[in-house]
Structure formats: structure tokens, C-alpha cells
């Protein structure tokens, strides 16, 4: 799975979760860039991403995520393992 495919998957989840089909994510995007992406919504996004890619993040891993790029790298690592 390429980074591009992972990014597309995350984008679809985020668009659905924030009800905004115009959202475009880049590796340096952070939650604060988008209206409505609060800590509560973040839980839904993380859980939906886990389901979509069939992975499970550890508590510590979730806490270390800062930018979308970190998210992509974590999923790539999980899928590669």
C-alpha cells in the first residue's frame, strides 16, 4: 500500500467525519486546520481509520500523532508488519 493510497483513505474518512467533501489533506496538515476536528471528533476519526485499514493503534501510538504525515507513516508501518 502506497503513501498516496493511505492518504486517500484517511481523506475519505475525514471528509465523511467532518461532512465536508472539499477537504484536502497534506502530510503537514494538523487537526486544528479544520473546523469541527476537536478531540471528540478525533476519536471517531482514529477509530474509523483503524477499521478502514484493518489495523489497531496502541494507546501510546495515538498520543504520539501530531501531523497527518505521522498518521500515514504509522499505518504504513502497521500494514508492512
Amino acid at each position: 500500500m502506497t503513501d498516496l493510497e493511505i492518504m486517500e483513505g484517511i481523506t475519505e474518512v475525514v471528509r465523511e467525519a467532518l461532512d465536508d467533501d472539499t477537504i484536502i489533506l497534506t502530510p503537514s496538515s494538523v487537526a486544528g486546520d479544520f473546523a469541527g476536528w476537536d478531540s471528540f471528533k478525533n476519536i471517531a476519526i482514529v477509530v474509523a481509520t483503524e477499521m478502514r485499514f484493518g489495523v489497531k493503534f496502541r494507546t501510546a501510538e495515538i498520543e504520539s500523532l501530531k501531523e497527518i504525515g505521522d498518521f500515514v507513516a504509522l499505518i504504513r508501518k502497521k500494514k508492512g508488519a
Binding site: V13, E16, A17, D19, A44, A48, M51
Partner: peptide
């Protein structure tokens, strides 16, 4: 529908 679609 899944939970994201439900919320939307």
C-alpha cells in the same frame, strides 16, 4: 450505515 455516515 456505519457510525460516520450516521453522524453525518
Amino acid at each position: 450505515m456505519d457510525f460516520l455516515r450516521t453522524e453525518r
